[in-house]
Structures are given as C-alpha cells and as structure tokens.
C-alpha cells in the first residue's frame, strides 16, 4: 500500500495505445515495491477501485535511463494528473522482460492486463 501523485510522463504508453498514469517516485512507493517488474494492483480513484497493471523499473524499449513507475488503470479513462492515488499492491506478476520492438511490448501489456483481470477479484 502506498500513495503517490500522478505526474506528467513522456506518453510512450498513450503512443502505443495503452495510456498509463505516471507516478511520482517517493519513499512509500519504493518501500511497497521491493523489486523491479510488473505488479497487479488496485487503484483507488475517488470512491472507486480499479484494477491495474503497475510497471516499476527502467523501460527496456525506450532509451530512458530513469527509473519509472507507471500504472495502467483498466477500464478507466479520466484525467488524473496531479491527483494523489492510493495503490494496493496485490501481487508481483513478472520481472522486466527485454523487448525488441513495439509489437512485442504491446503483446506483453495485453498479457499483463489479462493476468491482472484474472488475479484480482
């Protein structure tokens, strides 16, 4: 469990059809996510709780050296910039996988979404 503010990212996710909320990396986030990879999470937005796939680490495809944390909120299409989100970590799903192109990445994300849907009731 941690809280983090949604910040502006470089919109890589939106460019490939999977928009994500980029989260400010803070101490609470680092404590909650003990290894790099993809997690199944619950995202609290207002009074609603959404399922999400959360990525924590360095993106393998893009030449971005920074650690990033971004969450793909499933069945969600609202502007949450600057909002503070509460995230419940449900399970660690996988390590970061090196991908060579965008289609491979899209397939990975698609699989992650399916896994999240199945792993969170």
């Amino acid at each position: 469990m941690f809280k983090s503010k949604v910040i502006h990212g470089n919109k890589h996710g939106a460019d490939i059809g999977y928009p994500t909320a980029n989260l400010e990396v803070n101490d609470a986030l680092k404590r909650a996510l003990d290894k790099y990879g993809v997690y199944a999470v619950k995202v609290h937005v207002g009074d609603k709780i959404y399922k999400g796939a959360l990525f924590w680490g360095k993106r393998s495809l893009f030449s971005d050296p920074d650690l990033v944390c971004e969450v793909l909120i499933i069945d969600f299409n609202e502007n949450v910039y600057n909002k503070e989100l509460d995230i419940d970590v449900v399970s660690f799903m996988r390590n970061i996988i090196q991908v060579s192109d965008e289609s491979e990445l899209k397939q990975l994300i698609k699989n992650d979404i399916e896994k999240v849907k199945n792993s969170i009731q």
Binding site: M1, F2, K3, A28, H44, E84, L85, D86
Partner: peptide, 8 residues
C-alpha cells in the same frame, strides 16, 4: 500519513 492519502 506517509502511506495513505487524505481521501483514504
């Protein structure tokens, strides 16, 4: 306070 938002 470090782990939960005011909404939570």
């Amino acid at each position: 306070a470090r782990d939960i938002s005011h909404r939570r």
